Computed example of a mutant assay.
Amino acid sequence: MSKTKVLHIIRRSEGGMKKHLLSLVRLLDKEKYQIAIFCSFDQETQEYLKGLGIQVFEVDIDDGINFKKDYKAIKSIRKIVSEFKPDIVHMHGAKASLVGRIACYNKPVKSVVTVHNFLNYNNMNLYKKKLILGLSKILDKKTSQFIAVSNALKNDLILNQNVDKNKIKVVYNCIDTTFYDETSFDLRKELNLPENSFVVGSIARLIPAKGVQDLIKAASILKNINAYFVIAGDGPFKEELQKMIEGLNLKDKFFLLGYRRDIPAFLRNLDVFVLPSHEEGFGISVIEALNEGIPVVATKVGGISEIIEDGINGILVEKGNHIELAKAIQRLLTDEELRKRLSLKGKNSAEKYSCKKMVEEIEQIYDSLKGR
Rank of each mutant, 00 (worst) to 15 (best):
Met1Tyr: 14
Ser2Asp: 14
Leu7Thr: 05
Arg12Ile: 08
Ser13Leu: 03
Leu21Ala: 09
Leu22Trp: 04
Ser23Pro: 06
Leu27Ser: 09
Asp42Gly: 14
Gln43Val: 03
Glu44Thr: 07
Thr45Asp: 04
Lys50Asp: 07
Gly53Asp: 08
Ile61Ser: 02
Phe67Val: 11
Tyr71Ala: 15
Lys79Ile: 13
Val81Ser: 15
Ser82Gly: 13
Glu83Thr: 12
Phe84Gln: 11
Lys85Val: 11
Ile88Glu: 04
His92Arg: 01
His92Ile: 10
Gly93Ile: 01
Ala94Trp: 07
Lys95Ala: 06
Ala96His: 04
Ser97Tyr: 08
Ile102Trp: 03
Ile102Lys: 10
Ala103Trp: 06
Pro108Cys: 05
Ser111Thr: 15
Val115Pro: 07
Val115Lys: 12
His116Gln: 01
Asn122Arg: 15
Asn123Pro: 00
Tyr127Ser: 08
Lys128Arg: 11
Lys128Glu: 10
Lys130Thr: 13
Leu133Met: 13
Leu133Glu: 15
Gly134Asn: 09
Gly134Ala: 04
Lys142Val: 14
Thr143Asp: 14
Gln145Ser: 12
Phe146Cys: 15
Ile147Phe: 12
Leu153Ala: 07
Asp156Gly: 14
Leu159Pro: 10
Asn160Ser: 15
Asn162Leu: 14
Ile168Leu: 14
Tyr172Lys: 12
Ile175Ser: 09
Tyr180Gly: 04
Asp181Ser: 15
Asp181Pro: 02
Ser184Gly: 14
Phe185Asp: 03
Glu190Ser: 11
Asn192Asp: 09
Leu193Asp: 02
Leu193Met: 06
Ser197Val: 09
Ile203Ala: 11
Pro208Asp: 13
Gln213Asp: 10
Gln213Trp: 00
Leu215Thr: 01
Leu215Ile: 00
Lys217Val: 02
Ala219Gly: 12
Ser220Pro: 00
Leu222Ile: 01
Asn224Glu: 11
Asn224Gln: 06
Asn226Glu: 14
Val230Asn: 08
Ile231Ala: 03
Ile231Lys: 05
Pro236Val: 00
Glu240Leu: 10
Glu240Pro: 08
Gln242Phe: 10
Asn249Cys: 02
Phe255Ser: 14
Leu256Ile: 12
Arg260Lys: 10
Arg260Thr: 13
Ile263Gln: 05
Leu267Thr: 02
Asn269Leu: 01
Leu270Asp: 03
Phe273Cys: 05
Phe273Thr: 08
Val274Lys: 01
Ser277Arg: 03
His278Arg: 15
Phe282Leu: 06
Gly283Arg: 08
Ile294Asp: 00
Val301Asp: 04
Glu306Asp: 11
Ile308Asp: 00
Glu309Val: 04
Glu309His: 09
Ile315Arg: 00
Asn321Gln: 12
Ile323Phe: 13
Ile323His: 09
Glu324Thr: 12
Leu325Asp: 06
Lys327Gly: 05
Gln330Thr: 11
Arg331Gly: 15
Thr334Arg: 05
Asp335Gln: 06
Leu338Trp: 04
Arg339Glu: 00
Leu342Asn: 00
Leu344Ser: 13
Gly346Leu: 09
Lys347Ala: 15
Ser349Gln: 09
Ala350Tyr: 07
Glu361Pro: 04
Ile362Asp: 07
Ile362Leu: 14
Gln364Ser: 15
Ile365Met: 11
Asp367Thr: 03
Asp367Pro: 08
Ser368Gln: 10
Ser368Tyr: 03
Lys370Val: 12
